[in-house]
């Protein structure tokens, strides 16, 4: 049998550094391998303040989820959820209301397996392996159908993930497809790397990531705002993560790194 199998391609390489584990490392997590840490260190050297950028982005996720819950959202689709680093959406949300349902989506098999281990005993949360760039593949996944009701408003989270979508993947059309399939009253919470500030450092970071399995494509503020086409932006619009509904001094830092990721939340109107 082994000889017969000789032509079968080698197993997918699981040990390749992944953006999800780099993020985990930058947040102080231990869910990472030497190769991830090595890449994370190069990332942090290229882009000073990376740990704070990661932390502020994670804090935005928390505030965004809480904001959506306050506005009546009771189901979440978190695309690009990555490693179940501390402070997952279901932890945040189910602490407020245990009936809230959450589906995590990631295209990295280890992150998905990890999330599934974590969620083994939680029947209101699930993790699926699918890719952001196939909206129908994501939305028609059986696990998504099992937990979420697309006819009801939901919180679509794309926090720190859309910058992995290259321009040739037609980002606007992608988002438009997601929007089409969401019920009116749904929300999109999105954060995204920008090179509007510190372009040289960003270029260095992009270079560091260019050979990883997850290259990064920063976008301008205008481009990020355009991603919300068809959504009604919630005040204050597309702003640095720290400026989006801050609640505590720890949610901010003084340096330019505070503006490295833009964030925004938008609501799908009846006509959107």
């Amino acid at each position: 049998m082994a000889k017969q199998l000789s032509w079968v391609p080698e197993d997918v390489e699981m040990g390749r550094p992944s953006a999800a584990r780099v993020y985990d490392y930058l947040l102080g997590g231990g869910h990472n391998f030497a190769a991830d840490r090595e890449l994370a260190e190069r990332f942090a050297r290229a882009l000073p303040g990376s740990r704070d950028i990661a932390r502020l982005n994670r804090a935005f996720l928390r505030r965004g989820v809480l904001f959506l819950i306050e506005n009546g959202i009771r189901q979440f689709l978190d695309i690009g959820s990555g490693i179940p680093t501390v402070g997952n959406v279901h932890e945040i949300a189910q602490a407020v209301d245990p009936t809230i349902r959450v589906v995590y989506v990631d295209n990295e098999p280890v992150a998905v397996a990890h999330s599934q281990l974590l969620l083994e005993h939680n029947d209101r949360a699930a993790a699926v392996e699918a890719d952001l760039v196939h909206p129908d593949g994501v939305l028609d996944h059986p696990a998504v159908h099992g937990l979420l009701d697309l006819d009801q408003p939901l919180g679509l989270l794309m926090v720190g993930v859309f910058h992995f979508v290259p321009p040739e993947r037609a980002p606007l059309e992608l988002l438009a497809r997601y929007r089409e399939r969401l019920a009116p009253g749904s929300y999109l919470a999105l954060s995204h790397f920008t090179a509007d500030t510190r372009p040289a450092e960003m270029a260095a970071m992009v270079e560091v990531m260019s050979n990883s399995r997850d290259p990064i494509h920063p976008r301008t503020r205008a481009e990020i705002a355009e991603l919300f086409t068809g959504f009604e932006l919630v005040n204050p619009g597309v702003v640095p993560t720290a400026d989006w509904h801050p609640v505590a001094p720890a949610d901010d830092v003084a340096g330019p790194e505070r503006e490295q990721i833009y964030a925004g939340v938008g609501r799908k109107t009846a006509t959107g």
Partner: peptide
Amino acid sequence: FVFDQQEELKRALLRAKERAERQLWLSE
């Protein structure tokens, strides 16, 4: 804490590999 997380990660990796292998085996 780190040991635990590493342990968890390894379990995840193992699980992902098992799944990939099973899928491979099935498709094979």
